[in-house]
Amino acid sequence: MTLNIVSDRRGNIVSISQFGDVGDKISGITTAGIQAEPGHHIHEIEVPEELGGISLLDLHKSYKVEISKGVGCLVKA
């Protein structure tokens, strides 16, 4: 599962997004994005399978973004 995550400079999560149609009707949207506010960073993060069962809101509340070798990953806050 790929998530688009916006964090502040310290890695605190501002928002998490999972792209794609949710309902039965097809939107036709091919892609989307967020224009980051000053001081915010956008990360595209492949979330490990073990986190796949956690709701986005629980991830949001419990995790932060850590940058390792230029790659962002989710770690427990």
Binding site: F19, D21, V22, K25, S27, I29
Partner: peptide, 10 residues
């Protein structure tokens, strides 16, 4: 309507 994306926001 269509429904797209699941997002969070502080």
């Amino acid at each position: 309507s269509w429904v797209w994306g699941t997002n969070t926001l502080n």
